[in-house]
């Protein structure tokens, strides 16, 4: 049911843009005001969320240790999975963020026995997730070419790498194909694995459909319903230079694309997509396991009612003396 609602929501959004631009000609609204607004919400919202997390202190150092600790010098410690200093913690985090190391762990060599063992989902989840995120990142970086003139070398390089296979005209970007396939996979597994469907919320399907919609509209306007790229660049450079003007005749597909992107930006800070920022703040991963070597300070550590030795001895002095246990006060 949640999946239907999410699909419906995205279709509704497309209709809004279709009507807004296609029939009512609200070019400025959809080409300037909404993108500006969405971007502002994104920046402020993102900062707000990060600050909100950051103002909560980290009272205890609680890394999840996934390997041998550093203790005796002759025992080999697992620096990566149980980092003992900031350097290795950064490496651990980097691998986590760039390669999804923890997700990959589920697929580590297992004894293959028994009749029919299907390894199924775990490995695919890692591969699908990684493909999705990397494709997304590269696509965003590729879009940088719309915002600067001349286009920087790294973007051109990225673009040529992405189009390496030289299929079709215009050249098919690998990432375009990858993101559609990966997003479809992530959706399909959500629906068809009963356990995952059981835990899935509207908020899990919606971003998938939204990003899927963005990818599809993007692909459509690049390969099928050609749009006026120079007019687009005029618009995007206008945003950057704060002299926005929404040229007509770019093509409706562009506005559909742009509107969904705007919605994604505005939705981002209020959604689970904030895992982008949150992963860096997870105390189970971003702290070194050097607890006993370096004291961690809890800013709200307060005094509590304890049972002192004096109270204890007062209560048990007689029996202690009888048992020949030394006491402080005779």
């Amino acid at each position: 049911m949640n999946a239907f609602y999410a699909l419906f929501a995205v279709i509704l959004l497309l209709l809004v843009a279709w009507v807004g631009v296609g029939t009512v000609d609200l070019y400025s609204l959809f080409g300037i005001i909404i993108p500006y607004l969405a971007f502002t919400i994104f920046i402020l919202g993102f900062l707000y969320r990060i600050i909100k997390w950051a103002i909560s202190p980290v009272p205890f150092r609680i890394p999840t240790t996934c390997g041998q600790q550093k203790s005796l010098p002759w025992l080999k410690s697992s620096k990566l999975d149980n980092p003992h200093n900031a350097f290795w913690t950064i490496i651990r985090m980097a691998l986590e963020v760039l390669t999804f190391r923890s997700l990959f762990r589920s697929t580590r060599a297992e004894l293959r026995e028994g009749p029919k063992i299907t390894y199924g989902d775990t490995k695919w989840l890692w591969a699908g997730g990684l493909a999705f995120h990397w494709a997304f990142l590269i696509i965003i970086l590729r879009h940088y070419r719309f915002f600067v003139e001349p286009v920087p070398a790294f973007v051109l390089y990225l673009q040529s790498m992405d189009g390496l296979f030289q299929i079709g005209l215009p050249v098919l970007y690998i990432t375009d194909a990858v993101i559609v396939v990966a997003a479809s996979y992530l959706f399909v597994r959500r629906v068809f694995i009963p356990q995952v469907r059981y835990i899935s919320l509207f908020a899990d399907y919606f971003p998938l459909f939204l990003i899927g919609g963005i990818a599809v509209t993007g692909i459509l306007m690049r390969y099928f319903t050609k749009i006026d790229v120079s007019a687009v660049k005029e618009l995007t450079l206008g945003w950057i230079n704060f002299k926005p003007a929404a040229p007509e005749g770019i093509g409706i597909m562009f506005y559909l694309h742009l509107f969904l992107v705007s919605v994604l930006f505005a939705y981002f800070p209020f959604s689970k997509l904030m895992h982008l920022g949150g992963i860096f703040l997870s105390p189970a991963r971003n702290l070194a396991n050097n607890n006993r070597a370096k004291r961690h300070v809890n800013p709200w550590n307060y005094d509590v009612k304890v049972h002192t030795y004096e109270e204890y001895e007062d209560e048990f002095r007689e029996v202690m003396k009888e048992a020949d246990l030394p006491v402080e006060k005779e």
Binding site: G114, I193, Q195
Partner: peptide, 25 residues
């Protein structure tokens, strides 16, 4: 009416599914 994971049928990863299915066999 919730069904347990059958996909992960690893002897150690999901012992219940493994034990039942290999036992039936």
């Amino acid at each position: 009416d919730f069904k347990i994971h059958k996909e992960n049928n690893n002897r150690f990863g999901n012992p219940v599914a493994y034990t039942i299915s290999s036992g039936l066999e």
